[in-house]
């Protein structure tokens, strides 16, 4: 009986940790919003498809997905 109760107190620790983790993610979200990441949700999706280096040959044509009509 006694061991059972002592074993159960670990739940305080577990719940506290889980809340701390959740709060950490929440803070990350706030920081992301504050830095303006959510202001433009379209351009980054296009930008990520560009190659870093500029090719001198134009042989491989990059097909982009259908354009969003604005």
């Amino acid at each position: 009986m006694l061991t059972q109760i002592r074993g159960m107190s670990v739940i305080y620790l577990l719940i506290s940790i889980s809340i701390v983790v959740a709060v950490a993610f929440f803070i990350a979200f706030i920081v992301a919003v504050k830095s303006g990441q959510y202001d433009d949700d379209y351009t980054p999706s296009v930008r990520i498809l560009f190659d870093d280096e500029i090719k001198k040959t134009k042989n491989n044509i990059i097909q982009t997905t259908e354009e969003k009509q604005i």
Binding site: D39, D40, D41, Y42, T43, V46, R47, L49, F50, I54, T64, E67, I70
Partner: peptide
């Protein structure tokens, strides 16, 4: 109006010395 526009405008630094970065906001 398109992805080509984003690409060329974000590569302005290659056309003009003195521009360090340029960033497009497409919706605006």
């Amino acid at each position: 109006h398109c992805s080509s526009c984003i690409w060329i405008l974000e590569n302005l630094s290659r056309l003009q010395n003195g521009i360090s970065t340029s960033q497009v906001n497409f919706p605006e």
